[in-house]
């Protein structure tokens, strides 16, 4: 059993498929996420692939504060993903709500709605910071294979 678990953990680390979801960002973080996926940074080196559907994804990459409009949809997308799943919050707004915290239409950061595994601050977070954050999240999987997001 130990060997199988190790192989599956290895595969999980080597093949994170991501789903990009804008929860109400100003689009700056989205541009940086897209930039991280371009040939210049070439995330396929690490096995990262951008998927269109939550059923295929392992990592949900969220940007922006959670607005009241998007809250239900965010929870629904999160629940559509198969276990084990991880959430990465990209940008200051998605970490804490940022400058929008306390607005009448904003719920707060991503972690106020769904559990988050990694926070990547920045306004906007640069592609290098995003890649570093995802790499650190994956490295943490090797240490604690049982812990889920």
């Amino acid at each position: 059993m130990g060997l199988i678990k190790k192989v599956v953990t290895w595969a999980r680390i080597k093949s994170p498929w991501i789903l990009h979801f804008n929860t109400g960002a100003c689009n700056a973080c989205d541009i940086e996420i897209i930039a991280a996926l371009t040939p210049r940074y070439d995330l396929e080196r690490f096995g990262v692939q951008l998927k269109g559907t939550p059923r295929h994804a392992d990592v949900l990459v969220c940007s922006g504060p959670v607005t009241r409009q998007i809250e239900d949809r965010l929870v629904r997308i999160y629940e559509q993903m198969p276990e084990p799943k991880f959430v990465v919050a990209v940008g200051t707004c998605s970490c804490t709500g940022g400058v929008f915290n306390g607005c009448y239409n904003v719920r707060g950061g991503i972690s106020s709605v769904i559990p988050v595994s990694a926070f990547i601050p920045g306004c906007p977070a640069s592609p290098k910071a995003i890649i570093d954050g995802v790499a650190k999240l994956l490295a943490s999987l090797a240490e604690e294979p049982k812990k889920k997001g």
Binding site: V7, V8, K14, G47, D58
Partner: peptide, 20 residues
Amino acid sequence: RVGPPWFQTFADFIKLLGKE
């Protein structure tokens, strides 16, 4: 681009087998 490492497709396959 550089492209995926040689074990990429095997990692994808094993990972999908281990998912819900």
